[in-house]
Simulated assay, not measured.
Amino acid sequence: RAALMAMLSGVIGDDFEGEGLSVRQADEDFVVEAPTSSAHKPEYKVGIKPVDSGLVIDHIASGAPVEEIWNRIDKIRRVLGLNLRSSHGVYHTSSGAFKGIISVPDLESFGEKELKRLGAVSPGCTLNLVQDHRVARKYRLGMPPRIYKFDDIACRNENCVSHPSHEEHVEASFVRKGGTDTFVCRWCEKEHDYPEIWRV
């Protein structure tokens, strides 16, 4: 702790010339708006009630085992606070694999911040914003270049200053390593597989 305090006060470490973890600018756009068709809203699977207006999160953990898809649906609902009237489930895709769907009627707003949170929680999913029985906007969400500002993430390294057991109130922050699903802690540089950073 003495060395950390000295670094924070500028007594040591001011001669550091290396580079910290950085995010490649090209990876910033992990939320991509997709074209929509002028056709009526798609017919959803048995058990999913089509929404007249609201949102549909589709392709959740597509191709993963059923238990993992249910866990991802639960994680999305908790992190985004989707404790609303809705329906959700696990269904077959046209290729025979499984995917998750969450359908939330009457949700009036879903901003850029929520889109990025959804991308961080469930990369690879699609968000359809439905208005007047039609898909008004559609977004495809990729793996984000960094994940931070979530109460639900933590570094697994017990010696890291951001580990919850230290009660240092240092926010966990992770940077994606290249084009992989590996995330590196900003503070201790421990590598984590994507699911390991989540505490939910």
Rank of each mutant, 00 (worst) to 15 (best):
residue 52 D to Y: 14
residue 80 L to C: 03
residue 57 I to K: 06
residue 53 S to R: 09
residue 71 N to T: 11
residue 79 V to N: 04
residue 71 N to F: 02
residue 80 L to M: 03
residue 65 P to I: 06
residue 74 D to Y: 13
residue 81 G to F: 01
residue 62 S to Q: 15
residue 69 I to M: 10
residue 51 V to S: 02
residue 71 N to C: 06
residue 62 S to A: 15
residue 52 D to M: 05
residue 79 V to D: 07
residue 81 G to V: 01
residue 74 D to S: 12
residue 65 P to W: 03
residue 57 I to Q: 07
residue 72 R to F: 06
residue 54 G to L: 06
residue 76 I to P: 06
residue 71 N to S: 13
residue 76 I to D: 02
residue 59 H to Y: 10
residue 51 V to R: 07
residue 51 V to T: 05
residue 64 A to L: 10
residue 77 R to S: 09
residue 71 N to H: 08
residue 58 D to G: 11
residue 74 D to R: 14
residue 58 D to Q: 12
residue 64 A to F: 14
residue 62 S to F: 06
residue 74 D to H: 15
residue 70 W to M: 09
residue 56 V to Q: 00
residue 54 G to I: 01
residue 73 I to E: 13
residue 64 A to E: 14
residue 73 I to G: 05
residue 75 K to V: 04
residue 51 V to G: 01
residue 72 R to N: 14
residue 63 G to T: 15
residue 67 E to L: 07
residue 63 G to K: 07
residue 56 V to I: 13
residue 64 A to C: 12
residue 65 P to R: 10
residue 68 E to I: 08
residue 71 N to G: 12
residue 74 D to F: 13
residue 51 V to L: 01
residue 51 V to P: 03
residue 51 V to A: 02
residue 67 E to H: 09
residue 59 H to D: 10
residue 68 E to W: 03
residue 76 I to R: 01
residue 59 H to T: 05
residue 60 I to E: 03
residue 78 R to A: 07
residue 77 R to L: 09
residue 79 V to I: 13
residue 65 P to Q: 11
residue 54 G to E: 02
residue 58 D to S: 11
residue 79 V to K: 04
residue 64 A to V: 03
residue 73 I to A: 03
residue 72 R to P: 04
residue 59 H to I: 05
residue 79 V to F: 04
residue 61 A to I: 05
residue 55 L to F: 12
residue 52 D to K: 15
residue 59 H to R: 14
residue 62 S to R: 15
residue 56 V to T: 14
residue 76 I to Q: 00
residue 58 D to E: 15
residue 65 P to K: 12
residue 61 A to F: 10
residue 81 G to Q: 10
residue 55 L to V: 15
residue 52 D to P: 01
residue 77 R to M: 11
residue 56 V to G: 00
residue 54 G to F: 05
residue 78 R to W: 08
residue 52 D to L: 05
residue 66 V to W: 00
residue 80 L to A: 01
residue 58 D to H: 11
residue 65 P to M: 11
residue 54 G to Y: 02
residue 62 S to L: 03
residue 62 S to H: 09
residue 71 N to W: 01
residue 60 I to C: 02
residue 57 I to W: 05
residue 69 I to T: 06
residue 77 R to T: 12
residue 69 I to K: 00
residue 64 A to I: 02
residue 61 A to S: 13
residue 54 G to V: 09
residue 77 R to K: 15
residue 64 A to S: 12
residue 69 I to G: 05
residue 61 A to T: 04
residue 57 I to M: 04
residue 56 V to L: 00
residue 71 N to R: 12
residue 57 I to R: 09
residue 55 L to H: 00
residue 73 I to H: 06
residue 63 G to V: 07
residue 61 A to H: 06
residue 67 E to N: 06
residue 71 N to A: 14
residue 61 A to M: 10
residue 68 E to T: 10
residue 76 I to N: 04
residue 65 P to T: 08
residue 62 S to K: 15
residue 71 N to P: 03
residue 63 G to F: 06
residue 63 G to P: 08
residue 64 A to R: 15
residue 70 W to V: 11
residue 68 E to P: 01
residue 70 W to S: 13
residue 66 V to Q: 09
residue 52 D to Q: 11
residue 61 A to P: 02
residue 79 V to Q: 07
residue 59 H to M: 08
residue 79 V to C: 09
residue 53 S to P: 04
residue 58 D to Y: 14
residue 78 R to K: 15
residue 66 V to D: 07
residue 66 V to H: 05
residue 77 R to Q: 13
